[in-house]
């Protein structure tokens, strides 16, 4: 079932992009123009996607899907947690800065997906790693490569 959905998504994507290519300008000196190459790709992609859909429909490869959100959430709990933290990390970095957001992401994610019962040693390890990654990489790259990470509102 997932593959059928994937085929449909690829087909829709190729149709949308195909229509988009007609809004691109043409050029006298450049016979292919900005639209030619992408159009070629999406035509191929569309044909492949259609082939995949037909293949799956013929194979009658669609079991009835049951969307049991509770079960999905339970099975993929750690992935949801990590992805959600990852997204927050990226979004918040702009505001609270690289150092704080990196520390929070690394510390909290290890904390949340790690063993339920943690010893003092575990706390020490996960805190040190979070500190090392956030402060260590910040000062290393800033002084050595003059990379400017988002400093965050607390350090402006």
């Amino acid at each position: 079932m997932g593959e059928l959905t994937a085929g449909i998504i690829f087909l829709l994507l190729s149709i949308v992009i195909f229509i988009q290519t007609f809004q691109l300008p043409e050029s006298q000196y450049d016979p292919l123009g900005p639209a030619g190459f992408p159009r070629l790709i999406v035509v191929i992609m569309g044909i492949l996607a259609a082939a995949l859909i037909i293949k799956k429909l013929r194979a009658k490869d669609f079991k009835k899907i049951e969307f049991n959100f509770k079960k999905i959430f339970r099975d993929y709990k750690l992935i949801f947690i990590s992805l959600f933290n990852f997204l927050l990390y990226i979004l918040l970095m702009k505001f609270i800065g690289f150092r704080i957001s990196t520390f929070l992401f690394v510390f909290l994610t290890q904390f949340m997906i790690g063993p339920e019962e943690k010893s003092g040693k575990t706390y020490f390890i996960i805190t040190s790693i979070a500190l090392f990654l956030s402060l260590g990489s910040y000062y290393f790259f800033q002084s050595y490569l003059s990379v400017i990470f988002p400093p965050g509102i607390f350090f402006e």
């Binding site: 990590s82 933290n85 990852f86 990390y89 990226i90 990196t102 992401f105 690394v106 994610t109 290890q110 997906i113 790690g114 063993p115 390890i125 996960i126 790693i129 990654l133 990489s137 790259f141 490569l145 990379v147 990470f149």
Partner: peptide, 18 residues
Amino acid sequence: KYILVPTVMALCVIGSYL
């Protein structure tokens, strides 16, 4: 794994930013 995954994810962010 619970240490490796968040650590490498943060490294991915640092690498992409750099």
